[in-house]
Design a protein around this nucleic acid. Structure first.
Lengths: 211, 211
DNA sequence: GACATTGGTGAACATGCGTTCACCGAAACT
DNA sequence: AGTTTCGGTGAACGCATGTTCACCAATGTC
């Protein structure tokens, strides 16, 4: 029987459906404008059944944050993996932006969610996202510190550079998701991202020789 | 009689009160979660009276966008004025960030509004904000083109650099507004912004010598 | 095969929403 | 002084919201 399934399988299925529906429904506004009944209707269950899976809408939001950051961290791991195998700086930039393009293309929902709810979500969601992003910045800082030519950098400057790169990349991911899969638009965004990253890195490498 | 006033004065007063109340009320969520009745209650008028001033909530949103960009453009003018009188690059950066800090400090509501609704607002509001930001990027591009040492730059690279700077400065404004007036936090943000801008400019100045 | 667990149901609730309409009273105009 | 203009009022509408509760039927357990 292909259509029969264990109870917990079925439960997990509707849980997924709720998460997906919520992500879709708040796509062009925000979590704060998301209604439980809308989600339920989209999923095809009665509003009450929602509470079998989440304690509240806020709970749903936090689950979406976690899920989105699983996606984001998977991308960061992929980028880090590439960087180990690749020699020059421009090659690192190229491969990194390629990876970013590929992942954002495949999961624009999650990336847009982060970019949006970071500033507009419910307080608890905002807080969680900011915290996660801060962690990403710190990880990036230690990655950069491992690169050659950054020995004499202060911890503050490392942090500031990471923050700049993350901000730029969040902006890129946003623009990429807005490109909506049109290859020409995506190409333009990723070319811009490459240029931006390269500019920033050139600036960073010539740092301290000036100030 | 100090408390009497002409009819249009009174009208303008409540219009202002509505705008202020709306800005305050959507401060920790978004315009999409703003209710007409909330605003009316905050202002101290009956919900119906709202329609004497705006056609709809969306109309209110667009008015807030316009108002916010009046503030933002005033800041840009101030920065541009400084730049004309100041000699070195690092001095330009310092003065620019000072000006930004001062203006964001005085009008964090407007800056947070732009940063938030840019990604989370109602569609019409989002569209208007993106358009205005694009204009700012273009203006910045022509400003940069007027600086020495950018003769050989392509139009695309100018645009990309402007976009990077604007993205970074929107991020800075956001962080600055989040600092919530605490001088030490504001200082940290503006120091970071100075470093970031300087890095970007160093990168930009050494551009094309590499690629 | 009997029993407990549990995902989903449907009615009901109080509340808040945007918008409409006729109406009022004071300011503005003639 | 008489009339018009207009910001604000208050009731009313239909609809959507979050949450509660008792209930059901199929699955899992013994």
């Amino acid at each position: 029987m292909s259509e029969t399934q264990t109870r917990s399988e079925k439960k997990e299925r509707t849980r997924r459906a709720i998460l997906d529906a919520a992500l879709t429904l708040c796509e062009d506004s925000s979590m704060v404008a998301l209604s439980l009944r809308q989600v339920a209707k989209e999923v095809g269950i009665v509003p009450t059944a929602f509470y079998r899976h989440f304690d509240s809408v806020e709970d749903l939001g936090l689950a979406l944050v976690d899920e989105s950051f699983v996606t984001l961290r998977a991308m960061l791991r992929a980028i880090r993996r590439n960087d180990d195998t690749v020699p020059t700086f421009t090659a690192i930039v190229d491969r990194s932006v390629d990876t970013l393009e590929e992942h954002v293309h495949g999961h624009h929902g999650h990336f847009r969610f982060i970019a949006r709810e970071r500033t507009a979500g419910p307080p608890a969601v905002k807080a969680r996202i900011r915290h996660e992003i801060e962690l990403c910045e710190r990880e990036l800082a230690t990655d950069i510190a491992r690169l050659p030519g950054t020995d004499h950098w202060s911890a503050e400057d490392l942090q500031v550079l990471s923050s700049l790169i993350v901000t730029a990349m969040v902006g890129t991911a946003e623009a990429m998701a807005d490109a909506g899969g049109r290859p020409d638009a995506e190409k333009r965004v990723s070319d811009a991202a490459r240029t931006q990253l390269r500019m920033v890195l050139i600036g960073a490498l010539n740092w301290r020789s000036e100030s």
